[in-house]
């Protein structure tokens, strides 16, 4: 069980959260201009690093707010 630091509620059990995937994936500025391959890449392709990874979490059982944090995918340590 990971202990995740919610910026509003403090450290809480992982089971109170929903995972939101990689953070900072920007919506395309002009979606109509994208090819199918580029659109699929935006929708489905995400980084999968071994090490620090910036990701989105939602404190769904608490304040229900979204926030970002950096987690080490090897150790599950929350870095910031």
């Amino acid at each position: 069980m990971m202990l995740i630091p919610c910026p509003w509620c403090g450290p809480r059990d992982e089971s109170e959260f929903h995972y939101g995937g990689q953070a900072g994936v920007a919506y395309p500025a002009d979606p109509d201009a994208l090819s199918d391959e580029e659109w699929a890449r935006y929708l489905f392709f995400r980084d999968n690093p071994k090490g620090p990874f910036r990701e989105r979490w939602s404190h769904s059982a608490g304040c229900r707010r979204w926030f970002s944090l950096v987690r080490d995918t090897v150790t599950n340590e929350v870095l910031r």
Binding site: S15, E16, A61, G62
Partner: peptide
């Protein structure tokens, strides 16, 4: 007060 889960219930 705190919003959390008790016996898995919100």
């Amino acid at each position: 007060c705190a919003q959390t889960t008790l016996a898995h219930a919100p």
